[in-house]
Design a protein around this nucleic acid. Structure first.
Lengths: 196, 196
DNA sequence: GTCTATAAACTGATAGAC
DNA sequence: GTCTATCAGTTTATAGAC
């Protein structure tokens, strides 16, 4: 339409590809699948993108950049450890709500993609993510906000996994909003399922 | 070696295929990959199996049958709800320890495979699993063992996901045994991360 | 139980016309 | 921005020899 008619079409195609990658897996999704869903022929995709790999690359790197910008704002604040933990969890559920396909691709395909040098940033992302959480858990344990009788590495994995795995079932517009799911997940995570 | 020399070779090939399916995904693993890993040519695989699909079918159905036999023994006992919950979680971590590839394939590829009528039993498995946990959570809530202020469906998903997602990082022979991981996970799940 | 040889379909990608 | 046409490589699977 306007000056960025080309870039909106590009974004549209990328969104279609992301949905398919998320639903079927990167490898199992063919360029013909993407083209069919977009109503064009497979060769036409190459006017917009170099390769199938460059599509998933753009989906994942864009998502990662946005997510860490939000994380950094929390980490730079002077909230206490427990508040930061809650805010990071809420940001993560919000990311599932607003960018579900990218989170799903990250969960399902990132490990295999990261073997390629092109996706080195995925490894860097994981490392930064791990450091962020490990330091926060450590701070929370020292300040007395969190229990100190658990292994910090297992604690980190537990938090990380419980949050992101929700992408497997969460659907925007479902029974619970991302915020409501975050409320209940944080309640279980911090206080447990057992009756007091 | 003995009368079941053929069946041990079959089991050996199935184990190789399971490791590859778990590591790279079902679709991304080729019959040549499997044959290469086994030290034979791809055509030779078809002496043992009808198709690549029948390999993953056998891996998943065998695993499911074993797992539910163990679950049923717990459900048939007269333990209280909280004890049953703990036993079910421990069985699940044990399954990850003893049959990691099958659990990983189940986690990563079952949703897509289940679209095929051949894998109807995967849908049946999920339904039975959901019923089992939902009834147990309901029983625990009524008996006062579990909190009653949480949504039971979200509670079910939380338990299910936190347990099985550990297959993504757990490795037999690592720092923690399956039993030790189960101890800590159950402790977080029931009592939470927050300090008392 | 494995190999040789090969079929038939699929896949990612390219060149150039419109 | 999309289509026509097509290529080279890959993939699942088969038939028959050893």
């Amino acid at each position: 339409m306007t000056t960025n008619g080309a870039s909106t079409r590009r974004a549209e195609l990328l969104g279609i590809a992301a949905e398919l990658f998320a639903a079927r897996g990167f490898r199992a999704t063919t360029v013909r699948d993407i083209a069919d869903a977009a109503g064009i022929l497979s060769g036409s995709l190459y006017h917009h993108f170099d390769s199938k790999e460059s599509m998933v690359d753009e989906i994942l790197s864009t998502f990662q950049t946005q997510l860490f910008a939000e994380y950094d704002a929390v980490l730079a604040s002077d909230d206490d450890a427990r508040t930061k933990l809650e805010r990071l969890v809420r940001i993560s559920f919000d990311a599932i709500d607003r960018n579900r396909p990218a989170v799903a691709i990250f969960q399902n395909d990132a490990a295999v993609l990261a073997e390629d040098d092109r996706f080195d940033y995925l490894r860097a992302h994981n490392e930064r993510f791990r450091t962020m959480w490990t330091e926060l858990i450590d701070e929370g344990t020292r300040s007395g906000a969190l229990r100190d009788d658990l292994d910090p590495v297992l604690t980190y994995r537990f938090i990380r996994d419980t949050v992101w795995v929700a992408v497997a079932w969460y659907r925007p517009g479902g029974q619970f909003s991302a915020s409501e799911v975050a409320d209940q997940y944080l309640s279980i995570l911090l206080d447990g399922l057992g009756a007091r």
